[in-house]
Design a protein around this nucleic acid. Structure first.
Lengths: 348, 348
DNA sequence: TTGTATGCGTTATCAT
DNA sequence: ATGATAACGCATACAA
């Protein structure tokens, strides 16, 4: 169990100075070919790798990007990260992920842990609890201390920073329109509580589509759930609430769900009730992942191009990181990534 | 955009020495109440936080645990991480996640990035490509340099380290036995290629269960797939292969799948073929997640107690980290976490 | 061509 | 009660 070898040790072994070793390893012109060879051979033998911590301290940059996401299971986040990594790696950055588990405290804690030297900037999607509490002080502080943040998907107007969002409103509107075109008259929506920005945008898109087609919206058909799937109990409650939606609205012939899982549960409940999809009821979910594809029947979804979202976020962050230090404070960009509807078997 | 404030700056502003500031902030007995108050007030005002990088360099420890997982979507990994965080946080450690995306290169890269000072130890599950290549040099090097590794789920005998595994063999055996008891005579298995250790263990459990019940195993009924769901193309291929399994074995009346998604796809294909579940065919999947619960019909699964796996892993790692430096080299532990079968509607 | 000194931010040890 | 100094590992400006 030998400790990692350092420049100092190499220097001592080879009886040269530390700086000579340092220079030799970087093939400096100043050093003789002989010494370079000797040093590099020794370094290779002992598998020398510069200590990143020391480098970070010296350079005041880590070449690392911190990503904070609320949950890990969603295919959406997985793909966002893939996009981030693609761009980050291309520019010589590494990616570190931390989870908030939809909790405000964990979000704050994890940001503090990373902000203190571990990374150069954040890409994050806000936790539900934070959105509910409307407490954004940790974002402000981080930004004030010179560490840039890029928010994606779940963003918030109160904070000035670069953002990457999806056209939630239009995406939802288009989806609902497809169901209306397919003949649905009584379309229900399973969405999140309003404090989740994307949830309320999608709800509005749904309402707008109805209005445009001259359909009067009914409160009965709008289900705003607290979607905690973290515990057995929560997930049961969710299930039961969706069952009630069906039981209270026997005339319902379409369901628009703001995420994949809600849609899946809706289909399960429909199946229990003997309702045929898509003949008697059409279903569309937001977010296109594996779940939708292999559901029975396969689910029509609003595809979010998660990977693109990740790529854009990484571009924005790196651009800011590499910009002439603190040149201009302002000029925050918001990039909108368009959605597409992917039609499968749950719509006509 | 003010940089983060440092001890040095506080010292200069307050016209005291750096060490006085440092001590004052830690409420040292040596410092007068006056000074302590003055310094702390100033620090608070400017929101002073010690620089973790500097601390790490000094202390030669980061109080961070690095977790490397092959994929992020699986509910299984999500819960493992939850377990790790629970124990880690209790012991004052933070958790950093990196993804290998089932790629050898990314696994190596990410380990190198983290091993060089960012963390104190690893908890990881080996990527498929690594298992296939059987190239474990990066694990050996990491361990040799004094950084402990705990492997979970996908482990490998060739490396000496602490491990946390599941009773894959018995879990599979029990699951298949349940199907046999339920009347299935021709049970198929959808598993991974043999290089994935857990896949082959589960396959053996399946074979053992058949043998015990006097059923002759048939090669036709064993499907070993390359499960890349990363691209559209791969996921299509997977789907088609599973369809062939059904078409080549019309007599098949049971399917045991080594993960949730394989089971889901099998159910979808069965549905396409008009096969009723569980009446005409029983299905069981390994890994118990949300998917299984909300599938139609809900899926009987082998539950892996992912969170426990995470907790155990964290315990093992922290124990080793806090142990008297390099006291004893040996005595690697392997903890086995038992599985349970959760019966739902896809079995009789 | 090689070596010395300095600094990145912090803490601990040893003066004063 | 306070301060100076060294050290963690590295890179670099400046001597020699």
């Amino acid at each position: 169990m030998k400790r990692k070898i350092t420049l100092k040790q190499i220097a001592r072994e080879l009886d040269v100075s530390i700086s000579t070793v340092s220079k030799a390893l970087r093939n400096s012109e100043e050093i003789s070919a002989d010494t370079i060879e000797k040093v590099q051979a020794f370094a290779k033998l002992y598998n020398y790798k510069p200590n990143n911590i020391a480098l970070s301290l010296k350079n005041r940059r880590t070449k690392k990007i911190g990503v904070i996401i609320p949950e890990i299971v969603h295919h959406f986040f997985s793909n966002v990260i893939k996009g981030i990594e693609k761009v980050a790696n291309k520019h010589g950055y590494n990616v570190i992920v931390a989870l908030s588990n939809e909790s405000f405290d964990k979000e704050v804690l994890n940001m503090e842990m990373l902000a203190n030297g571990s990374i150069d900037g954040f890409i994050l999607s806000i936790s539900k609890e934070t959105l509910m509490l409307k407490d954004y002080h940790h974002f402000r502080e981080t930004i004030n201390q010179g560490m840039p943040i890029v928010m994606f998907d779940r963003v918030v107007n109160e904070i000035n920073c670069d953002k990457v969002i999806v056209d939630d409103f239009d995406g939802a509107k288009n989806a609902v329109k497809i169901m209306i075109d397919g003949g649905s008259k009584h379309i229900g929506i399973i969405t999140t509580k309003d404090y989740v920005s994307v949830g309320s945008l999608r709800t509005n898109g749904y309402l707008s589509a109805l209005q445009l087609s001259g359909i009067t919206a009914s409160d009965e058909l709008v289900l705003k759930v607290e979607d905690g799937l973290d515990t057995e109990e929560n997930s049961d409650k969710l299930y039961k609430t969706i069952q009630s939606l069906f039981d209270n609205n026997p005339q319902m012939d379409g369901v628009f769900a703001v995420n994949e899982l809600f849609a899946l549960i809706a289909m399960k409940v429909a199946h229990e009730r003997g309702i045929k999809i898509p003949e008697q009821m059409q279903v569309i979910g937001f977010t296109n992942g594996v779940l939708s594809k292999y559901a029975t029947p396969s689910l029509t979804t609003v595809s979010q191009h998660a990977q693109q979202i990740g790529e854009q976020s990484a571009y924005l962050l790196i651009e800011r990181l590499e910009k002439d230090e603190d040149l201009e404070e302002d000029g925050w960009k918001t990039v909108i990534v368009k959605t597409d509807v992917v039609e499968r078997d749950s719509t006509k």
